[in-house]
Computed example of a mutant assay.
Amino acid sequence: MSNETVAQMQKQFDSIFGAPVRTYASLVVDHVEQVAKVQSDAAKAYADTAFKQVRTALDVKDPSDVRAYVENQQKVAQQLGERVKGDTEKVVSLNQAFVEKAQKVAQDSATTASAAVSKAK
């Protein structure tokens, strides 16, 4: 085989297999990074809320403080529920976008491979 033939085969291999694999790997890394950021932000927000509630509980000194603390717990629980819902929606959205992009990479790769096979015939 000549160097030109080998170079042609390497180029075809890269266009059919190498490039799609690199594209997909890049998608995976980006997706994992985005999901990790959402999770990190959520964990920080949940921890901040927990510490704030503990500090508020430590300031309870009389029955009126207890009543105010308990009443505030409903508000905190509602806010936390909304936060969890929002974080879940973010992750679902990221997952949907990832699936769509991964499908596009697979379709493009199949098209490229099909074209290469057709050209080889």
Rank of each mutant, 00 (worst) to 15 (best):
M1Q: 10
S2F: 07
S2Q: 14
S2E: 13
T5F: 13
Q8Y: 14
Q8S: 11
M9A: 15
Q12C: 06
F13I: 10
F13S: 12
F13H: 10
F17G: 03
P20F: 03
P20R: 01
V21A: 15
V21S: 11
V21K: 12
R22N: 01
Y24M: 11
A25H: 05
L27R: 01
L27A: 06
V28A: 12
D30K: 08
D30S: 04
Q34V: 05
A36L: 08
K37E: 10
K37M: 09
V38T: 04
Q39D: 11
Q39L: 09
A43R: 07
K44W: 05
K44H: 08
K44P: 01
A45Y: 01
Y46F: 14
A47Y: 11
D48Q: 00
D48F: 05
T49N: 08
F51T: 08
Q53F: 07
V54I: 14
A57Q: 00
D59F: 07
D59H: 04
V60H: 02
V60P: 00
V60T: 01
V60S: 00
K61F: 13
D62L: 06
P63L: 06
D65S: 05
V66A: 07
V66C: 12
R67H: 10
A68T: 08
V70Q: 03
E71A: 09
E71V: 07
E71D: 15
K75S: 02
V76S: 01
G81E: 04
E82W: 01
R83M: 04
T88G: 02
E89R: 02
E89P: 08
V91M: 09
V91Q: 00
V92K: 12
L94K: 04
L94I: 03
N95E: 14
Q96D: 15
A97K: 11
A97E: 04
E100K: 07
A102P: 09
A102D: 03
V105P: 13
Q107Y: 08
D108F: 07
A110T: 07
T112M: 03
T112W: 03
T112K: 11
A113F: 05
S114I: 05
S114Q: 12
A116G: 12
S118E: 15
K119D: 13
K121R: 13
